[in-house]
């Protein structure tokens, strides 16, 4: 269900505001609803005020335009997709309904809403709530039309199914092409709304943004959310892979170090053994040489003695000669 707001019919009497206040049992306003002086300033919905009417002076037009502002009950609402506790839901009637029993009060719905609708009870310390138009869901369920629609004296508001309202809107534009701009606001904006507007002046002149695009809000964040499982799975692979590579590098470096050390030790040991063997060889050679030298010396000494004692040999005993072999034996 939804409502068609024909801006060309609205006279800014604020009867819808009064009815809204009454049917929703909202707190009494600062200034009474029949005080049209409030229209001097642009207003937006606040805590305790679900809907407001604003006046717009249009250049080259003799009378001002009045626009009612309230929740547009989007087909695919930004606030619903933004709520991280599902405190906002799109109901079967088309109304976007707030459940205060879940709300944490993060106010992300207010960030997300392209129409600046949800308001917050900042001055309530213990049970603050987000407040916004309910499309009079409780009345719809009872078979009644929303309070504002019922109260409108000029039939500027029409309640019905969205398809039915679109048909009515098209018909009016077709029947009075000089009276309306050819644009049903809410038909495609942000994926479409259950609250529709037709106007005698371009919507931009009524502070209604025409640059919102036709992309439903959930699609704006869908890509980022879809990336989550991809990032998780890829990261697990990458992180473990990089970790494994750096571990393996470390291990290889360690092994290389060990191998190099082992090789070094081996080379050194071989060198040492070689040196020892050479030294041993040299020692033996030295020893042999020494022995040979001693023998030679002894033999020479013996020879000399023999030569000296030769003349005496013939006259005396041969004892010195006999001692030489004994000395030779000792040196060995």
């Amino acid at each position: 269900m939804g409502v068609l707001h024909d801006i060309s019919r609205c006279i800014g009497c604020r009867k819808c505001e009064a009815a809204c206040n009454k049917v929703n049992s909202l707190p009494p306003p600062d200034r009474p609803f029949d005080d049209l002086g409030v229209l001097a300033h642009k207003r937006r919905p606040h805590a305790g005020t679900y809907t407001v009417v604003n006046r717009f002076e249009i250049p080259n037009r003799h009378s001002p335009a009045f626009v009612k502002k309230q929740c547009n009950h989007c087909e695919e609402p930004a606030c619903v997709s933004a709520c991280f506790v599902k405190a906002l839901k799109k109901s079967a009637t088309g109304a976007v309904i707030y459940d205060p029993s879940l709300c944490v009060g993060c106010r992300y719905c207010m960030i997300a809403c392209p129409f600046d609708i949800p308001a917050y009870e900042y001055d309530n310390p213990f049970t603050p709530e987000v407040t916004k138009c309910t499309l009079c869901q409780p009345r719809i369920e009872k078979g009644l039309v929303p309070g504002c629609v019922e109260a409108c004296p000029k039939e500027a508001l029409t309640f019905g199914t969205r398809d039915g309202l679109l048909e009515i809107a098209r018909q009016r534009i077709k029947d009075f092409p000089e009276k309306y701009v050819n644009h049903i606001y809410g038909e495609y904006e942000m994926g479409g709304c259950n609250w529709l507007y037709i106007s005698p002046v371009p919507f931009a002149a009524l502070d209604m943004r025409e640059d919102l695009g036709i992309t439903p809000a959930p699609q704006l964040t869908g890509g980022a959310l879809a990336a989550v499982p991809v990032v998780v799975s890829l990261w697990i692979v990458f992180i473990n892979g990089i970790h494994a590579i750096s571990k393996r590098k470390e291990q290889l470096a360690e092994e290389e170090k060990k191998a190099a050390v082992a090789q070094g030790i081996k080379t050194e040991q071989e060198k040492l053994a070689d040196t020892v063997a050479k030294l041993k060889e040299k020692a033996r050679a030295d020893q042999e040489a020494a022995v040979k030298r001693e023998i030679k010396k002894a033999l020479e000494a013996a020879d000399r003695q023999t030569d000296e004692t030769e003349p005496a040999l013939e006259s005396s005993s041969r004892t010195p000669l006999e001692t030489t072999p004994a000395g030779k034996k000792e040196s060995e």
Binding site: F84, V85, A87, V104, G105, T127
Partner: peptide, 18 residues
């Protein structure tokens, strides 16, 4: 607004589209 409900998104009502 209601900090004592901060565990809600994890333990009570998961708004996974957000």
């Amino acid at each position: 607004g209601r900090p004592w409900r901060l565990p809600f998104p994890i333990f009570v009502s998961q708004g996974t589209s957000s």
